[in-house]
Protein backbone atom coordinates (compact mmCIF):
# COMPACT_ATOMS: atom_id res chain seq x y z
CA UNK A 1 0.00 0.00 0.00
CA UNK A 2 1.18 3.52 -0.79
CA UNK A 3 1.34 6.53 1.46
CA UNK A 4 -1.63 7.92 3.32
CA UNK A 5 -0.44 11.49 3.01
CA UNK A 6 2.36 13.07 1.01
CA UNK A 7 3.02 16.75 1.45
CA UNK A 8 5.58 18.01 -1.07
CA UNK A 9 7.18 21.44 -0.91
CA UNK A 10 3.97 23.00 0.37
CA UNK A 11 3.83 26.79 0.40
CA UNK A 12 0.71 28.59 1.59
CA UNK A 13 -0.21 32.15 2.41
CA UNK A 14 -2.99 33.94 4.25
CA UNK A 15 -3.98 37.45 3.22
CA UNK A 16 -0.96 37.52 0.92
CA UNK A 17 1.40 36.71 3.80
CA UNK A 18 3.50 33.57 3.33
CA UNK A 19 3.00 31.24 6.32
CA UNK A 20 4.02 27.80 5.08
CA UNK A 21 7.32 27.92 3.30
CA UNK A 22 8.07 24.52 1.85
CA UNK A 23 6.78 21.66 3.96
CA UNK A 24 7.71 18.08 3.16
CA UNK A 25 6.02 15.37 5.16
CA UNK A 26 5.02 11.80 4.43
CA UNK A 27 2.74 9.67 6.59
CA UNK A 28 2.18 5.99 6.00
CA UNK A 29 -0.98 4.01 6.81
CA UNK A 30 -1.26 3.08 10.47
CA UNK A 31 1.27 5.72 11.51
CA UNK A 32 0.89 8.39 14.14
CA UNK A 33 2.91 11.55 13.56
CA UNK A 34 3.19 14.52 15.88
CA UNK A 35 3.85 18.08 14.82
CA UNK A 36 5.18 20.35 17.52
CA UNK A 37 6.27 23.91 17.33
CA UNK A 38 6.08 27.39 18.79
CA UNK A 39 2.94 29.50 18.59
CA UNK A 40 2.51 31.14 15.24
CA UNK A 41 4.74 28.69 13.43
CA UNK A 42 1.96 27.63 11.05
CA UNK A 43 0.60 24.45 12.63
CA UNK A 44 -3.07 25.44 12.34
CA UNK A 45 -2.42 26.86 8.90
CA UNK A 46 -1.23 23.43 7.79
CA UNK A 47 -4.34 21.83 9.29
CA UNK A 48 -6.61 24.27 7.44
CA UNK A 49 -4.79 23.82 4.16
CA UNK A 50 -5.28 20.06 4.51
CA UNK A 51 -9.03 20.51 5.09
CA UNK A 52 -9.62 23.23 2.48
CA UNK A 53 -10.53 26.31 4.47
CA UNK A 54 -11.11 29.36 2.30
CA UNK A 55 -8.54 32.12 2.58
CA UNK A 56 -5.67 29.65 2.89
CA UNK A 57 -4.02 29.87 -0.47
CA UNK A 58 -1.58 27.24 -1.66
CA UNK A 59 1.07 29.03 -3.70
CA UNK A 60 3.36 26.11 -4.44
CA UNK A 61 3.67 22.37 -3.88
CA UNK A 62 1.37 19.40 -3.75
CA UNK A 63 -0.59 17.29 -1.28
CA UNK A 64 -1.52 13.71 -2.12
CA UNK A 65 -4.02 11.78 -0.01
CA UNK A 66 -4.02 8.07 -0.79
CA UNK A 67 -2.27 9.02 -3.99
CA UNK A 68 -4.94 11.55 -5.06
CA UNK A 69 -4.74 15.34 -5.31
CA UNK A 70 -6.22 16.45 -1.99
CA UNK A 71 -6.06 20.14 -2.79
CA UNK A 72 -8.43 19.71 -5.75
CA UNK A 73 -11.24 18.49 -3.49
CA UNK A 74 -13.87 20.60 -1.71
CA UNK A 75 -13.87 20.50 2.11
CA UNK A 76 -16.92 18.21 2.12
CA UNK A 77 -15.32 15.81 -0.39
CA UNK A 78 -12.21 15.58 1.74
CA UNK A 79 -14.35 14.76 4.77
CA UNK A 80 -16.33 12.21 2.77
CA UNK A 81 -13.05 10.62 1.72
CA UNK A 82 -12.07 10.24 5.37
CA UNK A 83 -10.11 13.37 6.30
CA UNK A 84 -11.02 14.80 9.69
CA UNK A 85 -9.78 17.84 11.60
CA UNK A 86 -10.32 18.24 15.32
CA UNK A 87 -10.38 22.04 15.43
CA UNK A 88 -8.16 24.00 17.78
CA UNK A 89 -11.08 26.37 18.24
CA UNK A 90 -14.33 24.44 17.65
CA UNK A 91 -17.03 26.68 16.20
CA UNK A 92 -20.28 27.45 18.01
CA UNK A 93 -23.42 26.97 15.93
CA UNK A 94 -26.47 28.39 17.72
CA UNK A 95 -29.77 26.75 16.84
CA UNK A 96 -28.32 23.45 15.62
CA UNK A 97 -28.59 20.65 18.17
CA UNK A 98 -25.40 18.64 18.51
CA UNK A 99 -27.13 15.33 17.66
CA UNK A 100 -28.72 16.79 14.53
CA UNK A 101 -25.32 18.02 13.45
CA UNK A 102 -23.68 14.63 14.06
CA UNK A 103 -26.41 12.80 12.20
CA UNK A 104 -26.30 15.17 9.23
CA UNK A 105 -22.52 14.83 9.07
CA UNK A 106 -22.46 11.05 9.35
CA UNK A 107 -25.20 10.55 6.79
CA UNK A 108 -23.66 13.05 4.38
CA UNK A 109 -20.42 11.08 4.55
CA UNK A 110 -22.24 7.75 4.15
CA UNK A 111 -24.02 9.14 1.14
CA UNK A 112 -20.70 10.28 -0.31
CA UNK A 113 -19.42 6.72 0.02
CA UNK A 114 -22.57 5.24 -1.50
CA UNK A 115 -23.82 3.78 1.78
CA UNK A 116 -27.40 3.97 3.03
CA UNK A 117 -28.07 6.60 5.69
CA UNK A 118 -28.59 5.46 9.28
CA UNK A 119 -32.16 5.80 10.47
CA UNK A 120 -32.97 7.55 13.73
CA UNK A 121 -32.88 4.34 15.79
CA UNK A 122 -29.60 3.08 14.41
CA UNK A 123 -28.05 6.48 14.90
CA UNK A 124 -29.22 6.76 18.51
CA UNK A 125 -27.77 3.33 19.25
CA UNK A 126 -24.43 4.27 17.72
CA UNK A 127 -24.25 7.54 19.59
CA UNK A 128 -25.26 6.02 22.95
CA UNK A 129 -22.55 3.40 22.62
CA UNK A 130 -19.96 5.97 21.63
CA UNK A 131 -20.61 8.47 24.40
CA UNK A 132 -20.55 5.63 26.90
CA UNK A 133 -17.15 4.49 25.65
CA UNK A 134 -15.83 8.04 25.80
CA UNK A 135 -17.45 8.91 29.13
CA UNK A 136 -19.24 11.93 27.65
CA UNK A 137 -22.52 13.05 29.23
CA UNK A 138 -25.53 12.84 26.93
CA UNK A 139 -26.49 16.31 28.02
CA UNK A 140 -23.88 17.61 25.56
CA UNK A 141 -25.85 16.04 22.74
CA UNK A 142 -28.98 18.07 23.26
CA UNK A 143 -27.32 21.45 23.36
CA UNK A 144 -26.59 23.44 20.22
CA UNK A 145 -23.19 22.61 18.73
CA UNK A 146 -20.49 23.90 21.11
CA UNK A 147 -22.71 26.71 22.42
CA UNK A 148 -22.01 27.32 26.08
CA UNK A 149 -19.57 24.39 26.18
CA UNK A 150 -16.53 24.75 28.42
CA UNK A 151 -13.14 24.52 26.73
CA UNK A 152 -12.83 20.89 27.77
CA UNK A 153 -16.34 20.04 26.57
CA UNK A 154 -15.58 21.49 23.17
CA UNK A 155 -12.50 19.31 22.84
CA UNK A 156 -14.41 16.21 23.98
CA UNK A 157 -17.05 17.06 21.43
CA UNK A 158 -14.42 17.05 18.68
CA UNK A 159 -13.35 13.59 19.82
CA UNK A 160 -16.97 12.45 19.86
CA UNK A 161 -17.35 13.59 16.25
CA UNK A 162 -14.16 11.78 15.34
CA UNK A 163 -15.37 8.59 17.02
CA UNK A 164 -18.69 8.72 15.15
CA UNK A 165 -17.20 9.64 11.77
CA UNK A 166 -14.25 7.19 11.99
CA UNK A 167 -11.88 9.05 9.69
CA UNK A 168 -9.04 7.47 7.76
CA UNK A 169 -6.76 10.45 8.36
CA UNK A 170 -7.36 12.40 11.55
CA UNK A 171 -5.63 15.71 12.22
CA UNK A 172 -5.86 16.89 15.83
CA UNK A 173 -5.01 20.54 16.27
CA UNK A 174 -4.00 21.18 19.89
CA UNK A 175 -6.85 19.04 21.14
CA UNK A 176 -4.90 18.75 24.39
CA UNK A 177 -4.52 22.43 25.20
CA UNK A 178 -6.38 23.57 28.27
CA UNK A 179 -7.44 20.07 29.30
CA UNK A 180 -7.19 18.57 32.77
CA UNK A 181 -5.71 15.13 33.07
CA UNK A 182 -9.06 13.29 32.92
CA UNK A 183 -10.10 15.07 29.77
CA UNK A 184 -6.68 14.46 28.31
CA UNK A 185 -7.12 10.72 28.90
CA UNK A 186 -10.56 10.83 27.23
CA UNK A 187 -8.99 12.43 24.20
CA UNK A 188 -6.11 9.93 24.16
CA UNK A 189 -8.48 6.97 24.56
CA UNK A 190 -10.57 8.26 21.68
CA UNK A 191 -7.52 8.57 19.47
CA UNK A 192 -6.00 5.24 20.49
CA UNK A 193 -9.30 3.47 19.84
CA UNK A 194 -9.02 4.69 16.28
CA UNK A 195 -5.49 3.37 15.78
CA UNK A 196 -5.57 0.59 13.20
CA UNK A 197 -3.19 -0.36 10.43
CA UNK A 198 -5.45 1.39 7.91
CA UNK A 199 -5.74 4.73 9.69
CA UNK A 200 -3.24 7.53 10.16
CA UNK A 201 -3.19 10.30 12.72
CA UNK A 202 -1.46 13.65 12.76
CA UNK A 203 -1.32 15.11 16.25
CA UNK A 204 -0.53 18.81 16.46
CA UNK A 205 0.50 19.83 19.92
CA UNK A 206 2.44 22.46 21.74
CA UNK A 207 3.27 20.25 24.70
CA UNK A 208 4.80 16.83 25.08
CA UNK A 209 2.20 15.75 27.65
CA UNK A 210 -0.36 14.31 25.23
CA UNK A 211 2.34 12.17 23.62
CA UNK A 212 2.69 10.18 26.85
CA UNK A 213 -0.75 8.82 26.08
CA UNK A 214 -0.72 8.85 22.28
CA UNK A 215 2.71 7.53 21.48
CA UNK A 216 3.79 8.79 18.05
CA UNK A 217 5.86 6.97 15.45
CA UNK A 218 7.46 10.22 14.28
CA UNK A 219 7.79 13.72 15.71
CA UNK A 220 8.36 16.83 13.58
CA UNK A 221 9.18 20.35 14.65
CA UNK A 222 7.49 23.08 12.66
CA UNK A 223 9.19 26.45 12.92
CA UNK A 224 8.86 29.49 10.69
CA UNK A 225 6.70 27.58 8.21
CA UNK A 226 9.12 24.67 7.66
CA UNK A 227 9.80 21.30 9.22
CA UNK A 228 12.95 22.20 11.10
CA UNK A 229 13.67 18.77 12.48
CA UNK A 230 12.21 15.28 12.55
CA UNK A 231 12.85 12.34 14.83
CA UNK A 232 11.36 9.55 16.90
CA UNK A 233 9.23 9.92 20.03
CA UNK A 234 12.32 10.86 22.07
CA UNK A 235 12.44 14.20 20.17
CA UNK A 236 9.29 15.26 22.02
CA UNK A 237 11.01 14.65 25.36
CA UNK A 238 14.02 16.62 24.24
CA UNK A 239 11.82 19.55 23.22
CA UNK A 240 10.14 19.41 26.60
CA UNK A 241 13.55 20.06 28.19
CA UNK A 242 15.00 22.58 25.74
CA UNK A 243 11.91 24.42 24.51
CA UNK A 244 11.60 25.94 21.04
CA UNK A 245 14.08 28.78 21.50
CA UNK A 246 16.73 27.02 19.43
CA UNK A 247 14.39 26.76 16.43
CA UNK A 248 13.19 30.32 16.64
CA UNK A 249 16.81 31.48 16.61
CA UNK A 250 18.01 29.10 13.94
CA UNK A 251 15.29 30.05 11.51
CA UNK A 252 15.34 33.77 12.19
Amino acid sequence: MGYMLEIKNLHASVDGKAILKGIDLTIGPGEVHAIMGPNGSGKSTLAYVLTGREGYEVTEGQVLYQGRDLLAMSPEERAGEGVFLAFQYPVEIPGVPNTTFLKEALNAQRKHRGETPLDAMEFIKLIRRTIKDLGISDELLKRPVNVGFSGGEKKRNEILQMAILKPTLAVLDETDSGLDIDALKTVADGVNALRTPERSILVITHYQRLLDYIVPDRVHVLAQGRIARSGGKELALELERTGYAAFADAAA
Binding site: R53, E54, P75, E76, F87, V96, F101, E104, P144
Partner: peptide, 27 residues
Amino acid sequence: LDRDALFYLRARGIPEAAARAILIEAF
Protein backbone atom coordinates in the same frame (compact mmCIF):
# COMPACT_ATOMS: atom_id res chain seq x y z
CA LEU B 1 -23.91 33.51 7.08
CA ASP B 2 -21.18 32.76 9.59
CA ARG B 3 -18.27 31.64 7.41
CA ASP B 4 -16.57 29.78 10.24
CA ALA B 5 -19.72 27.80 10.95
CA LEU B 6 -20.13 27.08 7.24
CA PHE B 7 -16.59 25.71 7.05
CA TYR B 8 -17.07 23.68 10.21
CA LEU B 9 -20.13 21.96 8.73
CA ARG B 10 -18.43 21.35 5.39
CA ALA B 11 -15.32 20.03 7.10
CA ARG B 12 -17.59 17.38 8.60
CA GLY B 13 -18.77 16.32 5.17
CA ILE B 14 -21.98 18.32 4.84
CA PRO B 15 -22.22 19.74 1.28
CA GLU B 16 -22.21 23.50 1.00
CA ALA B 17 -25.86 23.88 -0.03
CA ALA B 18 -27.03 21.70 2.86
CA ALA B 19 -24.71 23.51 5.26
CA ARG B 20 -26.16 26.86 4.21
CA ALA B 21 -29.67 25.49 4.65
CA ILE B 22 -28.85 24.24 8.15
CA LEU B 23 -27.51 27.65 9.17
CA ILE B 24 -30.44 29.59 7.71
CA GLU B 25 -32.93 27.30 9.41
CA ALA B 26 -31.07 27.56 12.68
CA PHE B 27 -31.12 31.34 12.42
